[in-house]
């Protein structure tokens, strides 16, 4: 069943994120995708997130489709104007991609092309509206399309530190949902209780909520997130658990797997973020019992 159908049927979806290469060597991406075929529902291909120039998500998504794995690609407004965005979205549909996630594009301060000019021709909500409009057969200029795409669109909720910040995020999500988004991806879940509270609030969104599951690769990573991103809520206990583990890297896998198992009955799916350790995805799913 396709990702779209599973969402509609309220079945649990398992997504995994895989980055396109910085360069043209796609062997790792293809190998990783093939390995996961059949075990996940779709692969999420980010575009040039973090401002790191890479092969575009559109091509990455097409590659995934070619491997027989459904693709969901990121779209955002930083690097392309409305012409390029619409053109790429139509292209995506024609090449078999049926799902998009409108993401918030990060600023360029950590980019590897700091001098690049950000575009921001459209806002995120604007982009969602454009996609809806394309689905209905009209482009932004109001011109009729010769054949309309049909795209499922999702959006993301950013990391939030407190309730107030969460409300802002939920408001933003609500707008995007009103504009046509049919699922949301949450920030990484490290604290289950907090996630449950979040889900209670997120119920009102009325669309499937898919939490991000982040693979913690090392103690240093856990500490880094805990320190630099208070919104992530990595507890001391979690850090202690990793520190005490005789095998710190597999401990991260275990944590990710357990988190997936724990959110199974709360959320409508998971999006697993392994950031370069895609070869660990099968182990995570094994732990999760998927």
């Amino acid at each position: 069943m396709s990702f779209q159908k599973r969402l509609l049927a309220h079945e649990f979806v398992v997504l995994a994120e895989m980055h396109t290469p910085k360069g043209v060597n796609i062997s790792r991406l293809v190998t990783d995708a093939r390995r996961m075929k059949g075990r996940i529902d779709a692969i999420v291909v980010p575009d040039m997130d973090n401002g790191i120039m890479r092969m575009s998500a559109l091509a990455g998504g097409v590659l995934m489709q070619q491997q027989g794995v459904e693709a969901i690609i990121h779209v955002y407004c930083r690097d392309r104007n409305r012409m390029a965005l619409q053109g790429d979205i139509l292209a995506a549909h024609v090449l078999g991609i049926q799902n998009l996630i409108v993401v918030h594009s990060e600023d360029m301060s950590q980019s590897d092309h700091i001098e690049a000019k950000p575009v921001y021709d459209l806002t995120e909500v604007g982009l969602v509206e454009v996609i809806q409009s394309l689905n209905k057969g009209k482009d932004m200029g109001g011109f009729d399309l010769d054949g309309a795409p049909s795209l499922t669109t999702g959006c993301t909720i950013a990391s939030y530190e407190d309730d107030r910040a969460l409300d802002v995020e939920l408001d933003a999500a609500r707008k995007k949902i009103a504009a046509g988004c049919s699922f949301v991806i949450t920030p990484p879940v490290f604290d289950l209780d907090r996630f449950i509270t979040f889900m209670e609030k997120a119920k009102g969104l009325g669309v499937p909520v898919i939490p991000t599951i982040f693979l913690i690769k090392s103690l240093a990573i856990a500490q880094y997130i805990a320190n630099s991103e208070p919104g992530a809520h990595i507890s001391d206990e979690l850090i202690r658990r990793i520190r005490k583990s005789p095998n710190r890297d597999t401990e991260g896998i275990r944590i990710a797997g357990e988190t997936i198992a724990a959110v199974k009955n709360i959320a409508q799916g998971v999006m697993i973020q392994t950031l370069g350790w895609e070869h660990r995805l099968p182990s995570i799913l094994d732990v999760a019992g998927l």
Partner: peptide
């Protein structure tokens, strides 16, 4: 060597 870089922790080798 693989490392996680920057606030968004992208993976780089």
């Amino acid at each position: 060597t693989g490392m996680q870089v920057g606030p968004q922790m992208f993976y780089r080798t």
